[in-house]
């Protein structure tokens, strides 16, 4: 395990010191113009007036954010009360993403731990097996999941044929189906950082705990878990963040009753609702939440690094 030191030679290499501006220019240009610029544009659009058939009128307005948070009655002249419709959709997204994260942790942690305790030469094979499905088209994976879980699908057929159940379990179009879909979409994001953390963990600590008569589960809870916590936190964030803004799993597996932020945003640009400033405002609120979570995690990570974890 002495690999870390050997690669140090190139860490501070500066052969291209004078050319780095030119080398970075293409990536700055493409990402600046086509990602950062558009996000700024979206912020501006969220403060404009809506055009009824999609698009905007260039007139500053707070209407989009007002519509998100306040209800002013049918004609807009009543005293404002809190509008719960969209807050509920956001809350449901957080809840669904949280459930999916918990599910991923319950399955992903033991998997990552198991892989990290295999002999060193077979670990990459296990990691590879876990990551392959991630590279398969998300749409195809979600459709496959729906096909498997349908009332007349293979899973229900199998359960009925074994006699475990008499009639099909309805899974599609429930909250649980969405959670399963999200879990299935992002599980590798949980396994990989936890695996990396457990692989670095010094198992002599477990041995020391055992020598001092700690039970195996106490060792796991009190020694292993605190040591690999940065990996667990990273995994939870990597599952939670994309889950919250996901569109395919709630759209295909959840049905109309289990609407999440992704569908709310999509509807503003595709469907009949067609309110661009509102869609931009909802996207801004989602982006702000994600950035807060990422900043919080970066701080946690920095703290863990300082502590030598």
């Amino acid at each position: 395990m002495a690999a870390g030191a050997a690669s140090g030679g190139s860490a501070r290499a500066d052969t291209y010191k004078d050319a780095r501006g030119w080398l970075l220019l293409p990536s700055w240009a493409v990402l600046g113009i086509f990602v950062l610029g558009p996000v700024g544009m979206m912020l501006i659009y969220s403060f404009l007036t809506k055009e009824f058939r999609g698009g905007v009128i260039w007139e500053p307005s707070l209407a989009a954010y007002d519509q998100f948070f306040f209800d002013r009655g049918l004609f807009g002249d009543e005293p404002p009360t809190i509008e719960w419709t969209y807050i509920t959709i956001f809350w449901r997204s957080i809840w669904q993403a949280g459930a999916a994260t918990l599910l991923s942790l319950l399955i992903g942690f033991p998997t990552a731990y198991f892989i990290a305790t295999r002999p060193e030469n077979v670990r990459p094979v296990w990691v590879f097996l876990i990551t392959i499905p991630y590279w398969v088209n998300l749409l195809i994976r979600t459709v496959s999941m729906k096909f498997l879980l349908r009332d007349q699908g293979p899973l229900n057929d199998f359960l009925i044929s074994t006699g475990l159940i008499d009639s099909p379990i309805h899974i599609v179009n429930t909250n649980f189906a969405v959670q399963l879909g999200l879990f299935y979409s992002y599980l590798p994001f949980m396994v990989l950082p936890v695996y990396a953390a457990v692989e670095r963990y010094n198992f002599s600590l477990s041995e020391a705990a055992a020598d001092l008569y700690a039970s195996k589960w106490t060792t796991l809870r009190r020694i292993v878990l605190p040591a690999v916590k940065p990996g667990v936190v990273a995994g939870c964030i990597l599952v939670f963040v994309p889950s919250m803004g996901s569109f395919l799993a709630p759209d295909l597996l959840g049905g109309a009753k289990n609407f999440m932020i992704g569908s709310l945003i999509e509807e503003q640009f595709k469907g009949n609702a067609g309110n661009w400033p509102f869609g931009a405002a909802a996207s801004m609120i989602l982006l702000t939440m994600v950035l807060i979570i990422l900043m919080f995690s970066a701080r946690q990570q920095a703290k863990a690094d300082k502590a030598g974890g």
């Binding site: 500066d14 291209y16 970075l24 990536s27 990402l31 963040v241 919250m244 869609g279 982006l287």
Partner: peptide, 30 residues
């Protein structure tokens, strides 16, 4: 290979931006 420079962190942030911004937000923005 460019040594240490002040905009290094910013550059890395910009390069990984598409990974941090939720896909649906990138889609709307674009």
């Amino acid at each position: 290979r460019g040594g240490q420079f002040r905009l290094r962190t910013v550059s890395f942030g910009l390069i990984s931006l598409p990974l941090m911004v939720p896909e649906i937000v990138t889609a709307v923005a674009t």
